[in-house]
């Protein structure tokens, strides 16, 4: 029995995932097509990218609630730069990344230097950014031809090359955002598994005091984790802007919870019980696959959040509930 539970904790999640992959395909053969595979991946890339960012903060035993709104404000920043300021798309990317970097830095400083608890600091930051993103465009979405405050029309537009980041495909098959997601996931996995930085980030999450007493500048690493989270979120924002092709004020909704759920589901993958890049990626793909498959089997869209919640709770039971209780 104990062996079975140990096996279930370790491989249970992957087995369920493989099972549902088989099941959906058998029930609906178009599920297995290449185009559907990539459509699943494309549907989860933005959330997946954000989830990788939040994984870094979870690893240092922190939390970043501002990732969703960071992505959203970066949608607005890049749109504003191209449409209103009529600048080159490269500026749009640079300004959006800078915005994400700065938000992460401020989060890090609030938590490490001002000693505000992580949840509260990033909650405050989330509100602040949500409000801030509305100000330059007076609460309206940004698109070519929109009316500006001085009565003129915005003349800039989304560059083709910028839109390619969100809508283009490699070999007419693989979406560019999926490639970006894959590259980011590989880099994050490598850093966390094979470098001293990853080792130290995990160590900080385990026992911050011990790491400090081992001569490590813990504050710097913690700030770095939030900077990474913010910058990755801005990357998600850029890809989102490129995909929708306009500065939609409502684009950030739902990103945060989906990303956090994916990272938490990642705890259960291979039974590691820790935030980890591989698990996060598996978690986000699992949700995407489940929603895609169930939609094909004509599950109504309004049940989607319920399904996500169900998966998250089940994964948390795998992670925490089945492990041996200690006295």
């Amino acid at each position: 029995m104990e062996k079975f539970i140990a096996f279930a904790i370790k491989y249970g999640f992957l087995i369920v995932m493989a099972g549902s992959f088989l099941g959906f395909g058998l029930l609906e053969s178009s599920f297995w097509s290449w185009s559907n595979m990539f459509s699943i991946l494309l549907s989860v890339t933005i959330v997946g990218i954000l989830a990788i960012g939040v994984t870094f903060t979870l690893i240092v035993d922190g939390f970043d609630l501002s990732i969703g709104s960071t992505a959203a404000i970066c949608v607005m920043v890049s749109s504003y730069v191209m449409v209103v300021l009529n600048l080159n798309y490269m500026y749009a990317i640079i300004f959006a990344l800078l915005a994400g970097f700065s938000i992460g830095l401020v989060n890090g400083l609030l938590i490490v230097k001002a000693k505000i608890p992580d949840l509260l600091a990033t909650l405050g930051m989330m509100f602040l950014i949500q409000g801030l993103q509305l100000i330059p465009s007076a609460g309206m979405s940004i698109g070519t031809g929109m009316m500006l405050a001085d009565g003129t029309e915005a003349e800039g537009e989304f560059a083709e090359k910028f839109l390619f980041l969100g809508q283009g495909r490699l070999f007419d098959l693989i979406p560019i955002p999926v490639i970006a997601f894959a590259l980011l996931a590989i880099v994050a996995y490598f850093i966390l598994q094979y470098t001293k930085w990853g080792r130290i980030l995990y160590a900080i999450g385990g026992n911050e005091k011990a790491v400090k007493l081992a001569g490590v500048n813990v504050e710097r690493y913690k700030i770095a984790a939030y900077v990474i989270s913010g910058t990755i979120a801005s990357l998600g924002g850029i890809l989102l802007a490129a995909r929708i092709g306009r500065g939609d004020v409502t684009s950030g909704g739902g990103l945060l919870l989906d990303a956090v759920a994916a990272a938490l589901i990642g705890f259960a993958v291979l039974g590691v019980k820790k935030p980890n890049a591989f698990g996060t990626v598996v978690g986000v793909i699992f949700i995407g696959m489940l929603l895609n498959g169930l939609t094909m089997l004509s599950l109504p869209y309004y049940t989607q959040d319920f399904i996500k919640g169900l998966v998250l709770v089940a994964a948390l039971i795998f992670t925490f509930g089945l492990s041996k209780s200690e006295i």
Binding site: Y202, G206, A210, L213
Partner: peptide, 9 residues
């Protein structure tokens, strides 16, 4: 436990 050990490592 407080100052040195990295639990789970």
């Amino acid at each position: 436990a407080v100052n040195a050990i990295l639990p789970d490592e």
